[in-house]
Nucleic acid binder design. Structure first.
Length: 593
DNA sequence: ACTGCCTGTCATTCC
DNA sequence: GTGGAATGACAGGCA
């Protein structure tokens, strides 16, 4: 059996860190952790050490109990179970057999036996090696370390012997772990793990099971992963996986191409620079905090900078809101709330009915309606719509449009003709005409909104939930006319959709009623036919009954052999089939009575 | 010019 | 009380 030499050299801090990293890979990689800084990790290490101390005491107690129990047990070689000793007299021999059996079953136990280091000796050595101020150093929680010395002793390196033998008493395992806690053994173990890593590539058996994260999530970064295995505490990797993997993963592939040669010493700054070069460039004031939440928020801020709502671009363009000039008073006799049942936001895009010369191409004689029409509830903001609005609004709309949209408009409207005019010129079908007409109407409310420089789209005004709508309104300072128009647009739009739904429902009801009417007519015809058939059947049955009656009555004779007169007698039958000959006179008398 | 249809809007009721 | 859906009624546009 192998005899483990205990080198006299003391481990360096780097070795301890490396050992720490390695056992953490095995022990902790399964759990995601939001730790980025060493301080947090060190605190956690201290807490863990305290817990391990307590655990060690508890396990020591258990070991003593198990020792006492083992002293009373022997191994049943057939079942592999420990059974109570039957004969105390043969205790010595049995003890020997038990030991042999254990040796045969587990090399660890054999190694311990052969190592001539008892548990107490180990503990003493432990106490000597590590004074009382940091006793936890001697008991790292890498108790489940994947490569125990048994790997070298009796099992091949790739054998899944990392799992404990269920027959191995916990005390023995713990004793081994006590031994493993020695720095010398840790160094030896470190070398073994390095060999295993080199041989298996990357912690194949246990690493994948315990840390399915980075080796899979960072394809093509195997070299980096292996480097990180050595230089980066798994907490960092886990933290990246847990917190940022989704966010930064699109960049990881690029980063892997530019990965610098990571030095043997891990530096969070370099790590951040490595994975967040853009953010480093953006947030260049002071070092990045290692706190994941802060980084998330910074990322969110970064992300929130880029996407700009097209509506916002349009709505908050210079001069739209903050001009401070008095809003032109607009009057639009006909509203168009911009939405229908199947309307898409594009249908209500502003400027669709704009003429190229800058005037609005209202459909449905809107230009005529512009002259003036009865003012209803719109009167508060629809006093009179000055011509200034037409030019201003049109120019604004045109300028707000993207070049592509303007080109599209030009393509749709090559001449100064209104879109509606061209659309109505040669409509192939009436439905299409109506649709175009509806689309043309769609822009009117938007133009009203644009005229009053309302910074919302009609779609938003109409379709936002009440809370969001109120929130949106509260975020902008709108004057009375704008508020009235916005609420009118919302009311019109909702009522328009409601009217469309109502009419659709009404049509569906009509169709349904027609269908029901047809069904009822069919049912009526069927019932009439059935009635006729049954009437015919009844008539035939009556005829048959009459024939049968006469036949039976004619066969009846009185005591003189004469037939009964049908005028004086009649046949009657009861429900049970009994037939009676009843005198008609008597029956008449009975009836009269 | 009349008619029927479609659509938007208003007023009202109800939830 | 408010918001919104539902609906009848009305008006305007169009074919």
């Amino acid at each position: 059996m192998m005899e483990i030499e205990l080198p006299k050299m003391h481990p360096s801090q780097q070795d301890m860190e490396l050992i720490d990293i390695l056992w953490r890979q095995d022990v902790d990689l399964g759990a995601g952790r939001e730790v980025f800084d060493f301080s947090y990790r060190q605190k956690e290490v201290e807490l863990r050490r305290q817990r391990e101390q307590e655990e060690e005491k508890r396990q020591q107690h258990l070991r003593e109990q198990e020792k006492a129990l083992l002293a009373q047990l022997q191994l049943d070689e057939e079942t592999g179970e420990f059974v109570p000793r039957s004969l105390p007299a043969s205790g010595t021999l049995t003890q020997t057999n038990t030991t042999n059996g254990e040796i045969a079953q587990n090399g660890a136990f054999a190694a311990q036996e052969g190592d001539a280091l008892s548990f107490d000796e180990c503990m003493q050595l432990l106490a000597e090696t590590f004074p009382l101020d940091e006793p936890a150093e001697s008991a790292p929680p890498c108790l489940d370390v994947s490569v125990p010395p048994t790997t070298d002793l009796m099992m091949p390196a790739d054998t899944p012997a990392f799992t404990q033998n269920p027959l191995l008493p916990g005390s023995l395992d713990q004793a081994w772990m006590e031994l493993l806690s020695l720095p010398e053994l840790q160094q030896c173990l470190n070398m073994q793990m390095q060999e295993t890593l080199n041989m298996d590539g990357f912690m194949k058996p246990s690493g994948e099971a315990q840390n399915p994260s980075y080796s899979q999530y960072l394809p093509g970064m195997d070299h980096l992963s292996s480097v990180q295995t050595e230089v980066c505490p798994p907490e960092y990797i886990n933290t990246y996986d847990g917190s940022f993997n989704n966010m930064v993963s699109p960049n990881l592939s690029q980063m892997s191409l530019n990965v610098p040669d990571v030095g043997a010493e891990f530096r969070p700054e370099e790590f951040n620079e490595l994975f967040y070069p853009e953010m480093e460039a953006k947030v260049n004031s002071g070092p990045l905090t290692s706190d994941g939440g802060n980084m998330v928020s910074q990322l969110a801020e970064t992300a929130s900078d880029s996407p700009v709502n097209p509506m916002d671009l349009q709505s908050f363009s210079p001069g739209n809101l903050s001009s401070g000039k008095p809003e032109p008073i607009v009057e639009f006799p006909d509203s168009d709330s911009g939405l229908s049942l199947d309307s898409s936001p594009h249908m209500s895009s502003p400027g669709k009915s704009l003429n190229e010369d800058g005037s609005f191409g209202f459909s449905d004689s809107d230009s005529e309606e512009m002259d003036g029409s009865p003012g209803g509830t719109e009167s508060d903001y629809t006093e009179i719509f000055p011509l200034v609005y037409l030019n201003d609004g049109a120019q604004t709309s045109l300028s707000d449009k993207s070049p592509a949209e303007q080109q599209e408009m030009k393509a749709k409207n090559p001449k100064t003709e209104p879109v509606e005019a061209s659309g109505y010129s040669k409509p192939p079908f009436t439905k299409d005409k109506q649709k175009k007409r509806s689309e043309a109407r769609l822009s009117r409310d938007e133009q009203r909104a644009k005229a009053l420089q309302i910074p919302f789209t009609v779609d938003m005004i109409i379709n936002l939930p009440v809370d969001d709508f109120n929130e949106m309104m509260s975020k902008h300072q709108l004057n009375e006319a704008q508020l009235a128009l916005v609420r009118d647009i919302r009311r019109w739009g909702k009522n328009k959709v409601a009217a469309q739904n109502c009419r659709k429902r009404k049509l569906e009801n009509i169709v349904g009623l027609e269908y029901e009417l047809d069904s009822l007519r069919e049912e009526k015809e069927r019932l009439k036919k059935e009635k006729s058939e049954r009437s015919t059947s009844l008539r035939e049955m009556k005829q048959q009954l009459s024939t049968l009656y006469q036949e039976v009555f004619g066969m009846l004779r009185d005591e003189h052999g004469k037939p009964f007169s049908p005028n004086e007698y009649s046949l009657q039958h009861t429900a049970d089939g009994t037939v009676f000959l009843v005198p008609r006179l008597k029956k008449t008398l009975v009836k009269n009575n």
